[in-house]
């Protein structure tokens, strides 16, 4: 029971965690290598920038989603929130709000939606699946009501240019991933609240008895997820130059898939920030590569599904051995 023993015993596990991160990274590199060899267009700066932009938005959704999944919940509404946020920010800009105000208000609406999810789960006792499913459908509806089904175009060039521009040769949208990812990592791994997300996901009752604010932790997780989603909605509006409540259809599933590929357990209490980020870019690479290889887009969906099964299965195998 000496401390020396302890040190010796934990290092394999730590090594394993790093290894898993590295394996995903290796998978990503292998995919890039294969696509680079089999297509002429993959390694072009244009395509790489496109890929990074494509993956960036799902990656940010996946980070928020991961917080929720760690607490043992699920957030099905993130795609709908992104679509709704793109509409709101477009409407606000059309009303002549300055960019900073439009973005702030949209993010605040995200906070509101997240708090509502927390309220539904903590106060009304609804299962996370149900409350976020309800938001998914009703937010799309509210968006359509606001716009009367029309697409709101954005004339503000300063706003839309941001998504096309680069900084240090890397697309701005990818910088946004780092802007979200680094604080998210510190929050999850090095803050008290990060620890509480795990403890609530593992055993809410034991956490409550240990003095953890369990309700507050749940509010926090869903609020972070919703804010990430509304931030993605803003980025989406920048990228396509319009606000449309039906955009980002099915992104919640891609976000969940990225998170799970990145090693998050749907049973809660297991997850990281770097894993879902890699997961999102792996998915984006597959879609991008399939396009370049002229694979029927219907097949892309099938391939994505198969890949989720394969990756998560191998992860499970490794866990069982560990």
């Amino acid at each position: 029971m000496s401390i020396e023993n302890t040190e010796a015993a934990i290092s394999p596990r730590k090594r394993f965690n790093i290894l898993f991160g590295l394996t995903l990274f290796a998978l990503l590199l292998v995919l890039w290598l294969i696509l680079g060899l089999s297509t002429t267009t993959f390694w072009t700066s244009n395509n790489m920038a496109n890929l990074l932009r494509q993956g960036a938005m799902i990656a940010i959704l996946a980070v928020g989603q991961t917080f929720v999944i760690i607490t043992g919940g699920i957030d099905l509404s993130v795609g709908a929130i992104a679509g709704f946020a793109s509409t709101v920010v477009a409407l606000l800009l059309a009303q002549g709000f300055p960019i900073w105000a439009a973005i702030s208000i949209t993010l605040l609406i995200g906070v509101g939606i997240g708090l509502f999810h927390g309220f539904g789960i903590v106060r009304m006792g609804l299962p996370p699946f149900i409350i976020t499913l309800a938001t998914l459908t009703s937010l799309r509806g509210v968006g359509l009501l606001l716009t009367n089904g029309a697409t709101i175009s954005i004339d503000n060039d300063a706003f839309t240019d941001f998504s096309r521009n680069d900084f240090l040769g890397v697309p701005n949208l990818f910088w946004m991933v780092i802007l979200v990812g680094v604080p998210a990592y510190i929050f999850l791994q090095h803050s008290r609240w990060g620890r509480y997300l795990f403890s609530v996901g593992s055993n809410a009752e034991a956490s409550r008895l240990s003095g953890v604010n369990v309700k507050g932790t749940i509010y926090l997780a869903y609020t972070l997820s919703a804010v990430c989603a509304s931030f993605v909605g803003i980025l989406l509006a920048m990228r396509i130059g319009v606000g449309n409540p039906t955009q980002a259809e099915g992104w919640e599933l891609q976000a969940i898939a990225s998170s799970v590929i990145g090693g998050t357990s749907l049973f809660g209490a297991v997850g990281s920030v770097q894993g879902p980020l890699l997961g999102a870019f792996i998915l984006a690479t597959i879609n991008n590569g399939a396009n370049l290889l002229n694979v029927n887009s219907f097949w892309q969906r099938v391939i994505t599904g198969v890949l989720i099964i394969v990756i998560v299965y191998f992860d499970q195998l490794r866990r069982r051995k560990g």
Partner: peptide, 15 residues
């Protein structure tokens, strides 16, 4: 009620 079984000993002790 007492433990987060799936989590490390260290987290449980420090919770």
């Amino acid at each position: 009620q007492g433990l987060c079984l799936s989590l490390p000993v260290s987290l449980n002790l420090n919770l």
